[in-house]
Amino acid sequence: MGNDAMTAEERLVATINLQPVDRVVCAPIIEQNAGQHVGITNKEFMWNWETAQTAIHKLWEDYPVWDCNAYLLHGRIGPVATKCGPGRFKMPGKELEDNAQYQIHEFETMTRDDYFIIKDKGWTEFRLTFLERAHQVSRVEVLEGQQEMVRLRQDEINRSLARGQSLTWGAIMGTIPFDALSIVRSMERFYKDMYQIGDQIEELMWIVNDAIIAGSEAAAKTTGINRVFVGGVRGAGQFISKKNFERFVWPYLKVMVEQLAAKEIVPILHFDADWTKNLEYFLDLPKAKFVLELDSATDIFKAHEILKGHCSIKGDVSPALFTVASPSELEEYAKKLITTFRNGEGLMYSSGCNMPMNARHENVKAFFDAVEKYGRYN
Rank of each mutant, 00 (worst) to 15 (best):
Y191A: 11
D179L: 06
L181E: 03
G164N: 03
G164F: 03
I172S: 07
I207P: 02
A171V: 13
I172P: 01
T175V: 10
L167R: 03
W169I: 10
Y191F: 15
G198S: 04
D193E: 14
A180W: 00
E188Q: 11
E203H: 10
M187G: 06
L167A: 08
F190N: 01
M173F: 07
M173A: 12
G170P: 13
Y191E: 12
T168K: 09
G170Y: 13
L167V: 10
S186R: 07
Q196C: 15
A171I: 13
I201Y: 00
S186Q: 08
L204S: 03
M205Y: 06
S186Y: 06
G198C: 02
G170R: 14
R185A: 00
W206H: 13
G198I: 04
I176C: 07
R189V: 03
P177E: 01
Q196Y: 14
T175Y: 15
W169D: 09
D199N: 08
L167Q: 10
Y195E: 10
R185C: 01
M194R: 13
V208I: 09
A171R: 12
V208P: 00
D179R: 06
G164M: 04
R189S: 09
S166P: 03
I176R: 03
I183T: 09
I201D: 00
S182K: 03
W169K: 12
D193I: 14
I201W: 00
D193S: 15
D199A: 12
D199S: 09
V208E: 00
A180D: 06
D179T: 07
G198V: 02
R185G: 00
G198T: 02
Q196W: 10
R189I: 08
G164L: 04
G198P: 01
D193W: 11
I183C: 06
S182E: 05
L167E: 07
L167K: 08
I197G: 01
I197R: 02
E188H: 08
L167Y: 05
L167I: 15
K192D: 11
S186L: 09
T168S: 11
G198K: 02
V184Q: 07
P177Y: 04
Q165E: 05
R189G: 04
Q196L: 14
A171G: 13
G170E: 15
R189C: 06
E188Y: 08
L181Q: 01
Y195F: 12
